[in-house]
Design a protein around this nucleic acid. Structure first.
Lengths: 135, 135
DNA sequence: ATATTAAACTACTTTATAAGTATGTAAATG
DNA sequence: CATTTACATACTTATAAAGTAGTTTAATAT
């Protein structure tokens, strides 16, 4: 599978934060409950988003998380790349893959790269705002 | 990862059979050697291709495998779908996935389906002939 | 016929990754 | 200072990918 629960859950969190935004910080406990996802698991995924400045978290009472941009300024592509590594269809193109010594003679490398390009373009063309529930 | 070694190896076998075609049957032992892939593992992957009539295998001396169509009549999409199941980016769309009870309210289902469509179209637009070494 | 070659089948093992849990620490507020 | 919530780390479990081993069946050449 190309997109695991990690990336899917991250997206759901972002959408949830967007849809339930009311100016205040939203505790992840609430999101976990609404989305029916383990709080602890979410807490392991969120650092990828906070460290890269997509959301801010504040500690303590009244704390929680909040988006820092308008929902239409987050692309799905950026969220998935941060949580899933890159959007590679094959191991050869993964972010941490060692350069294949057969790359020169590889018949399919080009095809995989072309696909990766398409995947990035597709997901970069969709924003969180696009995914929010319409009234 | 969306495409595992299963699908990648199947593609390499098909390309190898196409490039080394000389009218005779080609033993998988030779392909395994050329491609540096375990013979035993290849033998586990091939049934997906023989059972669906993409290649024929004959037993015994002088036996081996052979393509039944011209290389430009095999799409990469068809080979990957047979070996990998369907080309689903997420578990929800996998061939054997049980219908999600949250599908109605899912904000992202549409997006995944759209991506799956694009993936299929991309790989259906490439044939084995396109991947063969050019003289 | 029979030895040889190679596909086809079945069951098993190993390895890797995904997914989730548990426990504890740090920061903020009432 | 008690409570709440983010943040950090280590651990466990589940699932799937990847690969092996052994056996059987079918074809050919001698």
């Amino acid at each position: 599978m190309m997109i695991s629960t990690r990336g899917r859950y991250a997206l759901r969190v972002m959408i949830d934060l967007a849809e339930n935004y009311d100016g205040k910080y939203i505790p992840m406990k609430d999101v976990a409950l609404r989305q029916d996802i383990s709080l602890k698991y979410l807490e392991r995924i969120l650092p990828a988003l906070t460290k890269n400045g997509l959301i801010v978290g504040v500690h303590g009472k009244g704390g929680g998380y909040k988006l820092v941009r308008h929902p239409d300024e987050y692309t799905v592509g950026e969220i998935l790349r941060l949580t899933e590594g890159n959007l590679s269809p094959v191991a050869c193109l993964a972010h941490d893959a060692d350069i294949c010594d057969k790359a020169k003679e590889c018949r399919t490398l080009n095809m995989w790269q072309g696909f990766q390009k398409i995947a990035n373009e597709y997901f970069d063309g969709i924003t969180i705002a696009d995914l929010m529930k319409k009234e």
